[in-house]
């Protein structure tokens, strides 16, 4: 291979990095929009969570594991996914405690101090936010598990040293 091709391979790709850094905040803003408008337009918790997870995947693909693990680590992903499930089931169980059915949002009007229709809308929004949290974290941790093979980069060398001893 000639020298120019080798130079292309070895240099860092500044175009992709810069464009990703410009686009990622807008992608995350769009995902919040999709979650918030899930009642009366296409979208909802799952779709918004997937878009948010895709923005994190884009960050890790362009900037590398070492640079971007301070933004979102695997431990934080596990915490976020269980927080999302907790929000979802917490709202459902709160409706049970208020003598309704599971996820019967109308019952929330007793504690939220608003009328029935508003309570239903807010309950659905809360559940969508929980679903969005869970889907974002699970998408991200699936990506990390596939791309790193379940082993954190940097720990491979330690394992190799331990095995050679």
């Amino acid at each position: 291979m000639n020298g120019f091709a080798e130079m292309i391979i070895k240099t860092e790709d500044i175009i992709v990095k810069t464009i990703a850094r410009i686009l990622i905040p807008f992608i995350q803003l769009f995902s919040l929009y999709v979650i918030m408008h899930g009642h009366y337009s296409p979208g909802g918790g799952f779709q918004g969570g997937v878009i948010m997870g895709a923005s994190l995947v884009l960050l890790f693909l362009t900037h590398g594991y070492e640079e971007s693990k301070e933004r979102m680590s695997e431990k934080a992903a596990i915490l976020f996914s269980s927080t999302g499930v907790l929000i979802y089931s917490g709202i459902g169980l709160l409706c049970l405690l208020l003598l309704g059915n599971y996820l019967d949002y109308g019952r929330l009007s007793l504690i939220l101090n608003v009328d029935l229709a508003h309570a239903r809308s807010l309950g659905i929004l809360g559940v969508e936010i929980g679903v969005g949290f869970a889907v974002m974290a699970v998408m991200f941790s699936i990506f990390l598990d596939i791309s790193t093979g379940g082993i954190e980069p940097g720990e491979e060398k330690k394992n190799e040293k331990a095995s050679t001893r």
């Binding site: 091709a5 292309i8 391979i9 790709d13 175009i15 992709v16 464009i19 990703a20």
Partner: peptide, 11 residues
């Protein structure tokens, strides 16, 4: 940008 990234990956 996507086209650029794909061509780099090919190279």
């Amino acid at each position: 940008t996507a086209t650029h990234a794909i061509s780099r990956a090919g190279m």
